[in-house]
Amino acid sequence: MNAESPILRTVARYAIPLTMLVALRIFFQGHDLPGGGFIAGVLLAAAGAIHLLASGVGGAARVRWWRVAVLGLLVSVSNGIWPMLLGHPYMDNEFLHLGPIHLPTATFFDLGVMLIVVGTLMTIFVELSLEKR
């Protein structure tokens, strides 16, 4: 694939933010409908893949994507510890009341899942792009 293709770069300029917006929508919809962190992560990684195709692997290869996945794991696992500190079971659901918004701790679990999926998929994409033929 030619990384300098102007058509691809023009499309990517609009496709990437749009994909990210859809990912955000699906992430929050996942609370009680099909959706959630996994699918949002896959969509974000798809946006990343478009970026790799349009602008080449140079910028993305400087990020150590596996660290993103490990951080996501940390977010998901430690999210369950918080209820334990309050004397509840591990992974119990607590609510944060921020004015009219009720934020369940499950949101942070899903956020972690999203980071894991993005990190893993981007690691694979970058490694495959860097492989010499």
Binding site: L74, G80, M84, G87, H88, P89, Y90
Partner: peptide, 15 residues
């Protein structure tokens, strides 16, 4: 609830 620590500690240590 502390029973969970036997899997939580290796998990956090792996991270």
């Amino acid at each position: 609830n502390a029973v969970v620590l036997v899997i939580l500690v290796p998990f956090l240590t792996a991270i």
